[in-house]
Simulated assay, not measured.
Amino acid sequence: MSNRSNRFECHWQPSRRLLVAYLTLLLVTVVVLLRLDLALWLRLTGCGLCLAHALWTLPRSILLSSEHAVSRLRADSDGWYLHSRAAGWQPIELRRDCLALPYCVILRYRLPGRWWVSGLCIVHDSLSFTDHRRLRVRLKFSWHPSAAAG
Rank of each mutant, 00 (worst) to 15 (best):
V137T: 14
Q13R: 13
T29H: 09
W41N: 07
G88P: 12
R72A: 15
R96A: 15
Q13T: 11
G150H: 12
W89S: 08
R114I: 08
I92W: 02
I92T: 11
L111E: 07
V20F: 05
A87Q: 12
E9S: 11
D78F: 05
R16C: 04
H11E: 15
T24Q: 01
F8K: 02
V32M: 10
G48N: 04
A39N: 11
V32L: 12
A149T: 13
V70C: 14
L101F: 05
A147V: 14
T24E: 02
A149Y: 08
C121K: 02
R60G: 01
A86C: 11
P14F: 10
S65D: 02
D125T: 02
L99G: 00
D76H: 03
V137H: 09
L63A: 13
A54Q: 05
P59Q: 01
A148L: 07
R133D: 00
L120C: 05
L49T: 04
L101Y: 01
A149G: 15
R60K: 13
R72E: 12
L58P: 05
R7C: 08
R134N: 10
S71K: 05
L58Q: 05
S61Q: 12
H11N: 05
L139R: 00
W116R: 08
R4Y: 09
D76K: 04
A39W: 13
H83T: 03
R16N: 12
P112W: 05
P91R: 06
L82T: 13
R136I: 03
W89K: 04
H53E: 13
L111K: 04
Y109W: 03
A148T: 06
W12H: 06
R35V: 07
D76V: 03
A75N: 06
S61D: 11
G119E: 14
L42P: 01
L101K: 07
R60C: 07
L33N: 08
L19M: 09
P112H: 07
L73Q: 04
S5A: 13
L120M: 09
G113T: 08
W41M: 03
L26F: 09
T24M: 11
L58E: 06
L55R: 15
G113I: 11
E9V: 13
L51Q: 07
V32Q: 04
H144E: 14
G88R: 02
A21I: 06
E9R: 10
L55K: 08
E93P: 01
S5R: 10
P91M: 07
R95E: 15
N3R: 06
L19Y: 06
T57I: 12
A147W: 11
W115Y: 06
R136P: 03
W80D: 04
I106F: 11
D125L: 00
L111C: 11
D37N: 13
S2I: 09
L107E: 01
G79T: 09
R35H: 09
T29N: 09
S2T: 12
R85V: 14
H53D: 15
L73R: 03
W115D: 13
L49N: 00
